[in-house]
Design a protein around this nucleic acid. Structure first.
Lengths: 145, 145
DNA sequence: GATAGGGTTTCCAGTGACTGGAAGGTCAAG
DNA sequence: CTTGACCTTCCAGTCACTGGAAACCCTATC
């Protein structure tokens, strides 16, 4: 099948399939006489694997590792699990950062009247305005990441 | 003060300060006779504002809007709050995505032995292997974003 | 005055993971 | 034979920086 067909079957855009080939995530597709890429069911399966792993938030590099493990019949599930654990830690880290932002932002928003007047604790806090930023204990802190 | 001094005071790397100038987020700095950028306390305050807003996860574009509102004495706090609300929605969306990934990943990990054997439900699920991916109700779903 | 060491300047390139678009070749239908 | 959909390559843009090279400036020490 052509790249468009493969794209439809896998929900991976044709452009992205070409991109994955260009960075070596997938092997170069075979070609017709006129240069069109052709894909078979195994290619589709691989693309679906990639798509699912990407949807779980794995980076392309991590997906490459997962693909290698998938193809390696002598893999140990411990290696797969280690990759997953690493990724889970990244997710947790990102969630913690977002949570921290969320709390600060929501707190500031609660104190902002949101009317036609210019007084705004959100701006006051961003400006580091000690006089206007009342609840100092809740002031924005720097994140490590 | 020089850019290095300003960087130290604001926790914004010199390179990033130049970058912010290049994209127009901050006004071009004044220069010494020999071409060195110089910064005063007002510049430092602006950089700190930017830094805090970035730490809250606002995009550079959003920060530009916040800066404009900050400088506009006739702003309405409603405009600021609207920006914040928009950003909060983005944060919530990203958190929901991460949470969904997290749940799927953790579920898969729980079922993976993580030993020297090759059998691995994580890979089986990514491969879409219906025979080996037991708990179908928990199969990976596509995300909108 | 020479030299060493920092700091600063510009510009170019790379990151990650695509995505958009231009210019052109191919294919099937009518 | 033309139309329109599909395909090809290549270049550029996204976002927010970050790294590095080559050159200039500034101060201190010998």
């Amino acid at each position: 099948m052509n790249i468009g067909q493969a794209a439809k079957k896998t929900c991976v855009p044709a452009k992205t399939i070409r991109y994955y080939e260009s960075i070596g995530l997938i092997a170069p597709a075979s070609r017709t006489a006129s240069g069109y890429r052709t894909y078979d069911d195994r290619d589709v399966q691989t693309l679906r694997f990639i798509q699912r792993a990407r949807n779980l938030g794995f980076s392309v590099k991590q997906v490459a590792n997962l693909l290698a493990l998938w193809r390696d019949r002598d893999r140990s599930s411990a290696d797969v699990k280690a990759l997953a654990r690493e990724h889970l830690a990244e997710i947790d880290q990102r969630m913690a950062e977002l949570q921290s932002m969320r709390e600060t932002l929501e707190h500031l928003m609660q104190r902002c009247h949101g009317d036609e007047r210019p007084e705004c604790p959100i701006l006051a806090d961003l400006a580091g305005d000690e006089a206007e930023a009342e609840h100092k204990s809740r002031r924005i802190k720097d994140f490590a990441g």
